[in-house]
Amino acid sequence: MSILVLADHHDGQLAGTTAHVVAAAQEIARAGGGDIDVLVAGEGVSAIAEAAAKLDGVSRVWVADNAVYAHQLAEPLGALLVELADGYSHVLSSASTTGKNVMPRLAALKDVSQLSDVIAVEGIDTFCRPIYAGNAIATVKSDDALKVMTVRSTAFDAVAANGGAGIESVDKVVDNTQSSFIKEELAQSDRPELGAAKVVISGGRGMGNGENFKLLDGIADKLGAAIGASRAAVDAGYAHNDMQVGQTGKIVAPDLYIAVGISGAIQHLAGMKDSKVIVAINQDEEAPIFQVADYGLVGDLFEILPELESKL
């Protein structure tokens, strides 16, 4: 039996998360799971398929290139996965919004459970996943014939891209009369992707307003960092929703995470506590964020941020 990985892509490029999901698939393969195939579904995706074919450990790339798969809407993409899943023992995607949207449809139509947000492979049928906002780690065993799972990409190191898998097209085209794409409003940014950045600097309610988030820009520029935000900052309208780090936002695990004006609610900690080094800057020395920070600096962020920028 073999493993199918659904590739993540946007803006005509293979998303970095896919190489991490293939790494998880390799762990399953080493436990006895067989070959690894990748599915790239979308419209005008040949360059993405070529990028996926280079990922180490991939045997074959399926390309489903058709207008019906544009924007990876859940209904047609789910139907396509159901068609392709026969013959596979595992189907994996990243726990991206695309993966979360479509994988449960596949699982339900195959009458199997789904394992969400897998962070460790213990064996061919046994996996670890966080529950209760990461305050507990469950080890679960699936006896379903088909294992459908989403993978937390930050928990697996990306595979290299030295391979050369064959690319085959999928002729199967499904119908979709139920849903249609209207528009997308994507935040334009030259900064690294939040989920993949080596350094992340996040602002919380302590930033005071959206304008003050610009104080993070100079530091992010110097460190090559992505900029994140706490839920409180997003809810208050200081920052865009796709910047939210936490239980229900993005999960990050960079080498360096700098939390500015963030108190450290458990829902926020769930999204960043696996960072290698955490720095907290906060006026309130009792803030819970200091309990997880490697380096804490108590003080006025409006004085500290400009000074930090000048000294980096």
Binding site: V112, S113, L115, T126, P130, I131, G134, N135, A136, I137, A138, T139, V140, K141, S142, D143, D144, K273, I278, E285, F290, Q291, V292, A293, D294, Y295, G296, L297, V298, I304, E307, L308, K311
Partner: peptide, 24 residues
């Protein structure tokens, strides 16, 4: 369900570090 819970563990506890006195 065909998924069984084998065990539940607390995550590795992250220890707080030090407070530093200045940006330098």
């Amino acid at each position: 369900s065909k998924v069984s819970l084998i065990k539940v563990e607390a995550p590795a506890e992250r220890k707080g570090g030090v407070k530093v006195g200045s940006v330098d």
